[in-house]
Each structure stands twice: as C-alpha cells, then as structure tokens.
Computed example of a mutant assay.
Amino acid sequence: MKRILALCLFMVALGVTAQVSANRFFYELTYRPGVEVDSLHKTMTILDVTKDKSLYRDFLMVSQDSLLEVEMEKMRKSGTFKDLSKMFKTPKFSYKITKTYPSMDIRYTDQILQDVVGYEEKLKLDWKIQEEKSMIGEYSAQKATTQFGGRSWTAWFSTELPMPDGPYKFHGLPGLIVKISDSENHYSWELKGNKPVADFQEISYSEKMQKEFGGGRGETLMVERKRFEQMYEAYRKDPFGSIRSQLAQVPHDAKMPDGTSVAQMLKNQEEQLKKFLNENNNSIERSAPAKTKK
C-alpha cells in the first residue's frame, strides 16, 4: 500500500493534478567530512521532483524558512535589528544540483562567500546492473555499480519509483536510486520517505533574503567547471580573499545596530568559515569528472 501511495505521489508531481507542483524525496546522508576524520556525520538532504526537472539540496536550506520569515516580519514591524544568525543552523552542504528532464543535463551551483557560482555539465555514468535484489526500506530494489569521482559506487534502484534519478548527481538507472554508497563508506544516501509539496519554491526564503540584504552578485555566475574549481580552491585557502580590500575600509569603531563590533563580528565569521572548510575537505568527487555524453 505504501509503495502504491509513493507511485501516486510521483504521478501527481508530474502534473496529473495542478494542486501539487513537486514530490519531495528525503535522503539521509551519512558521510565522513574530513580525510583525517574517523567519525561519520548524518544530515538530511532532499530531492524535489517536478515534471521538468529535479533539485537536490541540503534540507536545512528550506526547513528553517518558516521560522526565518516570522522573525523577519517581527523585525520589520518593530523596526529593531536582531542577529538572526545565532538562531539558525548552517547547512552542511551549500551546493544545489538541478537535473533537467529528460536530458538529465546537470547544473551545479554553490555559495562562494557572497556570490553564487556554478557550472553545467553532461554526465554519462557507466552503470553495471547486477542480478542481486533486496528490500531497501519499503521498496524492492536491484543492485548496480559504477565508477564516479574517483570512487567505486554501489547503488540500489527501484522500478516501483519509475524515475531515472537519485541524490547528488547520480542518475541513469531504470528506477529511482533508493540507496547508494561508495566502497569506503565515506558517503552513503538512503531514501527515508517522500511527500508532495504544494508550495514548492526553487529558491528558499533565506536565499531571497540573502540576495536582498547580503550585498552579493544577485545573479548566479556561470563558468566552466575548471574555472569553478579554481575559484573554489582559492576560496578554501582564503575565504575572505575576494572582499579583503573592502574589509580594510570598514572603520575600526563601526558597530552593528545591536552594538556588536563589526570588526569583531567579521573576524569571528572568518575564523568559523576557515575552521569549517578545513574540517570538511573530503570531497564526494576527488578526481576528474565522469565522461561527458556524446
């Protein structure tokens, strides 16, 4: 019964009824954040499926929207400033991945300090479908393997969910990927549930606020993948490097509306960002990208 319901939800998301614009699949991601870190971390990620494309991202990007919207409205009405950064958790993964249907062309975007930068690519994953089958959660699934990003991957896909899609960039199997992990167990995704989303928003409320008040580029800067990797590497080495000259112009005695020293706030933010980037250096893709489609 649950599998039938899941299929019905999928059909709804594909436009059988206009009341639902997306179907949200919840994937629990278990991962090893750093190459020198032994412990495994967990976070919830989502794959939002519409009739035209899918969007994969960290669930925290959207789960805190309602609370943020309420707090912003309180600030507008009272005319007072409140540092909301202390109330909200920062997503472990800031990138978003869009796959366009039916071509499955990929658009990858990420936050590089104040700017959103991205690239587009066409990936062809060379899947080897095995005879082995197993129950993964509620779904009857079949095994498949591939090589991607310098890692060996084992996936389990289910034709009960007839979509050639999955978490992150994974796609191309005759059914939704319900579980996938690399041979070293550094990264593992498992489907934990799904639900229809009637008010699907590709851009979260927090992202809209960032564009309005953050002083960033506003529009996404699309570059070649090689250029993106160069920009991200420079960002890892010196997170505030692109705005260093601007920071030098901030008066030493400048204060935030709540009385906090601007200089100290920026220093704290830079230190926290450096620490985060240093501790999260175990990339999913640690080699050249997979073959492009011909």
Score class of each variant (00 low, 15 high):
170 F>Y: 08
184 E>I: 10
204 S>R: 10
113 L>H: 08
171 H>G: 10
176 L>Y: 07
238 D>Y: 01
182 D>A: 09
290 A>V: 10
256 M>N: 06
114 Q>N: 13
41 H>R: 14
105 D>L: 08
289 P>D: 04
184 E>P: 03
47 L>F: 09
214 G>Q: 02
109 T>G: 07
29 L>Q: 08
166 G>N: 03
174 P>E: 10
204 S>M: 02
240 F>P: 03
164 P>A: 10
183 S>P: 01
15 G>E: 09
181 S>W: 01
38 D>Q: 15
162 P>I: 06
47 L>P: 01
265 M>I: 01
251 P>T: 02
260 T>E: 12
60 L>F: 08
217 R>G: 15
145 T>S: 12
56 Y>A: 02
281 N>C: 10
267 K>H: 12
114 Q>V: 11
228 F>R: 03
194 N>V: 05
70 V>R: 13
195 K>Y: 14
277 L>G: 05
140 S>N: 15
150 G>Q: 10
133 K>R: 15
120 E>I: 03
4 I>H: 11
128 K>L: 15
19 Q>P: 10
213 F>T: 00
157 F>Q: 08
241 G>E: 05
270 E>L: 00
43 T>D: 13
44 M>Y: 00
99 K>W: 04
126 D>P: 00
294 K>W: 01
182 D>Y: 08
270 E>D: 11
99 K>F: 05
60 L>V: 12
171 H>M: 14
216 G>Y: 01
264 Q>F: 11
53 K>R: 14
279 E>L: 10
48 D>T: 00
249 Q>C: 04
130 Q>K: 14
277 L>C: 07
85 S>T: 13
130 Q>Y: 07
262 V>Y: 06
272 Q>V: 11
71 E>C: 10
177 I>G: 09
249 Q>G: 00
86 K>F: 09
271 E>M: 14
96 K>A: 13
283 S>P: 02
261 S>E: 00
104 M>S: 12
199 D>M: 12
125 L>H: 06
9 L>P: 06
9 L>E: 15
29 L>S: 01
286 R>M: 15
200 F>M: 08
76 R>L: 14
129 I>K: 01
43 T>F: 04
17 T>F: 09
212 E>N: 12
210 Q>W: 05
117 V>R: 01
22 A>C: 10
153 W>G: 02
40 L>H: 14
248 A>R: 09
112 I>D: 00
209 M>D: 05
52 D>W: 06
215 G>Q: 02
158 S>L: 04
182 D>G: 05
116 V>Y: 02
266 L>T: 02
45 T>F: 01
105 D>V: 07
75 M>F: 05
282 N>S: 09
288 A>M: 12
197 V>C: 09
163 M>G: 04
140 S>H: 11
13 A>G: 15
258 D>G: 00
268 N>W: 12
278 N>K: 15
274 K>Q: 09
40 L>N: 10
193 G>L: 05
1 M>V: 15
245 S>W: 00
29 L>D: 02
96 K>H: 07
26 F>L: 13
268 N>P: 09
266 L>N: 00
231 M>W: 06
70 V>E: 15
84 L>K: 01
34 G>C: 08
258 D>V: 04
170 F>V: 03
71 E>H: 11
77 K>M: 09
289 P>W: 03
78 S>Y: 07
157 F>Y: 13
96 K>I: 02
185 N>D: 13
128 K>C: 10
